[in-house]
Nucleic acid binder design. Structure first.
Lengths: 155, 155
DNA sequence: CATAGTAGGATTATTTTAGTCCTACTCATA
DNA sequence: TATGAGTAGGACTAAAATAATCCTACTATG
């Protein structure tokens, strides 16, 4: 099984797309959905969750759409993931001492906590800016269309 | 959502229990199930998976049951988890280059790979022996019954 | 060789996740 | 300020993954 839900995968792509347009005009849901191969309705739903978490901001009315709420360097993966699928818990008993009444005797609890912290730290250390910088799309295999958005060549 | 399935949580507890009895007589499924608060049938199923992965060995007939297949220090968490729930994939595209045709252009692929490696390394570095050593059950709050197995006091 | 007891596959039920549909709201333009 | 193109957001449905149970076949001790 996967740690990231499909939801979250989509959300990350949407966020990177928005990060790439940072300081530009709002991007319409349909535009984003098409660029990332997501059903428009579903994209809308995901964007709503991101908005609730204050990672993106919506602009209503004609010419409206979504913009990133702040600089790409100020949004990290942990925040993005939590916005869409909630906490990434290593085990049921992860978040705190709660959840399992056997916790204080549990032989795996210490390890679970350690793994949990590692995961959180790793995710929090990666920002959207890092994703932009490391993206393999920088070089060849990619061309820009007239509106400046990236498109992918068919394989 | 949790990284570990409930299955896996049970499996780890069963393994630790068996590790604690290492070199002793085989433990019957019912005995293990009761000690770890798992339905006997379900415990049996999990133990079967562990056997398939050669982490435990079964002894049939009366006085039969399960024993750990090798020293607790020789079984790590990654093996245990994979035996029960398969690969812990960070994202759909995690394991290799397969799964996503957009991989080579994907802005999040590098990060996904990095996270995947971190998770695998961490899990592989923890053995059943480590769990036994770190278990908070060593001290008080635990008493032994006549057969030498640990029991938990009611809270 | 009979039987207590275990292994292991097949099947069903439950929960979680993915995805769609519909209604209400917002605001640039005429 | 009335209009309508376009978005927000909740309610609902469908599909998939997971949890759990049931049943049959096998093993080896007494």
């Amino acid at each position: 099984m996967n740690v990231l839900r499909q939801n979250t995968d989509y959300a990350l792509r949407l966020l990177v797309n928005l990060a790439d347009r940072f300081n530009g005009k709002p991007a319409a849901t349909n535009q984003l959905a098409q660029a990332e191969d997501i059903s428009p309705q579903f994209a809308a739903k995901i964007l709503q969750k991101l908005q609730k978490a204050h990672l993106v901001a919506s602009v209503m009315g004609p010419q409206g759409g979504f913009v990133l709420a702040r600089r790409p360097a100020k949004i990290n993966l942990l925040q993005a993931i939590q916005a869409v699928q909630g906490m990434v818990a290593f085990n049921r008993c992860s978040p705190g001492a709660e959840g399992c009444r056997r916790k204080k005797y549990c032989p795996i609890a210490p390890v679970v906590d350690r793994m949990q912290n590692q995961i959180n730290d790793s995710l929090a250390s990666i920002t959207l800016q890092d994703l932009l910088d490391n993206a393999p799309t920088k070089g060849a295999d990619v061309k820009k269309n007239k509106s400046g958005n990236k498109t992918f060549e068919a394989e």
